[in-house]
Design a protein around this nucleic acid. Structure first.
Length: 266
DNA sequence: TACATATGATCAT
DNA sequence: TGATCCTATGTAA
C-alpha cells in the first residue's frame, strides 16, 4: 500500500535488478495475458516513476504502465521463487530473479499519446528533483477545498497519500480543514519542502518515519519501533508527542484524517 | 469462516 | 457524496 516514495523506490530497485536483461513474461491470473505475450522475451531498458505511476520501458514495444492502487503488491525473489498465487496479474523472470505483481489498479501497455495524456493530468512530483513549489502554490490558490483534501489530489502534488498528508500537515502546524487558497506563502513553502524531505527520506529507508528522534518515546538509537514512527496518523485519542494534547480524528474527502488541536490550530 | 480494514482512484449522481 | 473495483492481512467469532 504505497505512497510516492515506495513507487520511486520500486522504480530504482526494479531498474537495478532487471534492466538490460531479457524477461520471460506471463500472467498467471490470465487478466494480463495479452500484454504479457507482447512483452515476453523483450529486454527491459528503463524504469521510471511519476507520482504513484510506474513506467517500465522495453525495446520495440509499448511501455508497461502500473499503478498499484490501494491493494497492489510486488514480490521479488532473487532466486528459488515460490509458485505465483492465483491472483498474480503479471509475472516475469530474468537474470535478476523473478517478479510477481498482484492486485494493481492499473497494469496495461500504454503508447506515447496515452502517457503524454496521463502526464498532463499529474501535478508536480516532489521526487523528480526540481523544486516546483510555484506549481504547487498555483494549484492551491485555485482551490477552496480543505488543504487536507487538496494534498490527496494528484494534480496538486503527485505522490502524497493518506499517511503523508496527515504527517506533513502536523509537521507544518497547519489545520487540515484550512481552505487551500487561504494558506500563506510561508505555509505553502513549508508544506512543499516538508513533502520533498519526507518523501525522499521515505524512499531511502523504504518506510515512512516522520518522527524526529527527539520526540520519540524510547531512547532508541536504531530504528524506531512501529508505534513510534508517526505523529498523528492512526493515533486518535493518544497524546501528541510534542504537546500531550489528544489527537483528533475526522474525515476529509471520505478519507480519515488525524491532527493535534494544539499544534495545528485553526 | 467471516469480517473489518488498508498508504488509491474513478465514475455516476 | 456514494458506489465500485483491486487483494491481502489481521482479528473476531
Amino acid at each position: 500500500m504505497p505512497e510516492g516514495h515506495t513507487i520511486h523506490r520500486y522504480a530504482r530497485l526494479h531498474g537495478k535488478r532487471f534492466r538490460g536483461s531479457s524477461l520471460q513474461v506471463w500472467s498467471p491470473q490470465g487478466r494480463f495475458a495479452h500484454g504479457a505475450s507482447i512483452l515476453d522475451g523483450r529486454t527491459l531498458s528503463d524504469v521510471d516513476a511519476l507520482g504513484k505511476h510506474l513506467f517500465y520501458r522495453f525495446d520495440g514495444v509499448p511501455t508497461l504502465h502500473v499503478h498499484l492502487g490501494l491493494f497492489g503488491k510486488f514480490r521479488v525473489h532473487a532466486s528459488d521463487p515460490p509458485p505465483p498465487t492465483d491472483g498474480t496479474r503479471l509475472a516475469w523472470s530474468g537474470e535478476g530473479g523473478t517478479l510477481y505483481l498482484s492486485g494493481p489498479t492499473i497494469c496495461e501497455l500504454i503508447d506515447p499519446d496515452g502517457e503524454a495524456h496521463l502526464r498532463r493530468r499529474i501535478g508536480p512530483d516532489p521526487l523528480n528533483g526540481s523544486r516546483e513549489v510555484d506549481k504547487f502554490a498555483e494549484h492551491l490558490s485555485r482551490r477552496t477545498i480543505p488543504i487536507g483534501g487538496a494534498l490527496l489530489d494528484q494534480k496538486v502534488v503527485a505522490g502524497v497519500g493518506n499517511v503523508y498528508r496527515a504527517e506533513v500537515l502536523f509537521l507544518c502546524g497547519i489545520h487540515p480543514d484550512t481552505p487551500a487558497r487561504d494558506l500563506s506563502d510561508a505555509q505553502i513553502e513549508c508544506l512543499w519542502d516538508t513533502i520533498v524531505a519526507q518523501l525522499r527520506e521515505g524512499e531511502r529507508r523504504g518506510r515512512i518515519v516522520t518522527v524526529d528522534p527527539a520526540d520519540a518515546g524510547a531512547a532508541s538509537k536504531g530504528e524506531l519501533p512501529k508505534e513510534e514512527r508517526l505523529y498523528v496518523y492512526k493515533r486518535a485519542g493518544r497524546p501528541c508527542r510534542r504537546c500531550g494534547d489528544e489527537i483528533r480524528r475526522w474525515e476529509i474527502g471520505a478519507r480519515k484524517i488525524w491532527a493535534c488541536p494544539t499544534c495545528q490550530p485553526r
